[in-house]
């Protein structure tokens, strides 16, 4: 609560760029609820010592208080000077957890129990020895497709006693893509540029022209096993097919029967993934954007297609239904 208040008051308009070193002035500190309880316990001890004029009581009360105070410095040191070298987020499908991959560098001190997390999200805790570098994945839930800026990232630590919590809230300048959530369904496509007869609705079985037979590798689809060879007792072989050169599919907006544009995007997303997996040449047409078919298995092409879906904003005209 107070933490939010502090964060709001100290929020800057500029964002933080990596590499980022946590400066002292960016660190705030508050007692934890346990820390407050500990202070109450210390107060009771102090009152008891005063009442009984018990010097050993004083001594140990002051020792514990001083330890709490010293621990505060240790808490502060545990975070101060920590370096966040890089941070990237790979695109994810809506509904999946996006992971911010951060590279932390400890600098000259040991770092223990550094807790990283986005506001309202799960946190991860890492420790790293002095002079070490380590990558951590900070999770973040996604709901909608689109391009987003990451939210406030909080690094906190209650090291060593759990009595005080120090934290620093960063606003890193990192964007990330969220693709639509894939929605399974029949594979619908319009023919590519070279074909004109393949229009309509077909079941894709992943079968094009038979290419060769090779030895079985774990993970091959059972349907592609050559049972003929197997039955002759010559072991397992897989039939390989290749996509027909020149044949390409266009996955188009208008062919999706669903009315809801988000559903359409989800269906297209699913089909792009399938087409990619099946080594097909595919292109994408959505209102306001057309991507011609690319090379099969080209990850960059896949990325462009999915990115187009993620960033789809209703098209220029009539796309918004």
């Amino acid at each position: 609560m107070i933490k939010d208040l502090v964060d709001n008051l100290t929020k800057k308009n500029t964002s933080d760029t990596f590499p980022f070193q946590i400066a002292r002035k960016r660190l705030y500190m508050l007692p934890t609820p346990q820390g407050i309880l500990f202070m109450v316990v210390l107060f009771v001890m102090l009152v008891g010592s005063i009442n009984y004029n018990n010097n050993l009581g004083f001594l140990f009360t002051f020792l514990l208080s001083s330890m709490a105070f010293v621990s505060l410095l240790h808490t502060h040191n545990n975070m101060s000077g920590l370096i966040l070298k890089t941070g990237i987020i790979s695109p994810v499908f809506a509904g999946d957890q996006a992971l911010l991959l951060l590279t932390l560098k400890s600098g000259v001190l040991d770092r223990t129990g550094i807790c990283l997390g986005f506001k309202g999200e799960e946190t991860v805790t890492v420790s790293l020895g002095q002079g070490k570098e380590r990558q951590v994945a900070v999770p973040m839930a996604t709901w909608r497709r689109g391009h987003f800026q990451i939210k406030a990232l909080t690094l906190s630590s209650t090291y060593p006693f759990g009595l005080f919590k120090t934290w620093s809230t960063l606003y890193p300048d990192i964007g990330y893509l969220v693709y639509p959530k894939p929605l399974a369904g029949p594979f619908e496509f319009s023919s590519g540029i070279h074909e004109s007869d393949a229009e309509g609705r077909i079941e894709i079985k992943g079968v094009d022209d038979f290419k060769e037979i090779r030895a079985y590798r774990p993970g091959d689809a059972l349907s592609r096993l050559s049972w003929k060879i197997f039955s002759k007792g010559r072991g397992l072989y897989t039939k390989e097919f290749s996509a027909q050169a020149g044949v390409s599919l266009m996955l188009t907006w208008d062919q999706i029967p669903q009315k809801d544009p988000e559903k359409k995007l989800s269906r297209l997303c699913h089909m792009i993934q399938q087409a990619h997996r099946m080594n097909l040449r595919y292109g994408l047409t959505i209102p306001g954007k057309e991507i011609p078919p690319g090379e099969p298995k080209d990850p960059r092409h896949l990325f462009f297609c999915l990115k187009a879906l993620a960033l789809f904003d209703g098209g220029d005209q009539g796309g918004r239904i």
Partner: peptide
């Protein structure tokens, strides 16, 4: 930490 706290405790 106890060693670092002792001087403060003694002053108090």
């Amino acid at each position: 930490i106890v060693a670092q706290a002792i001087p403060l405790a003694l002053i108090l």
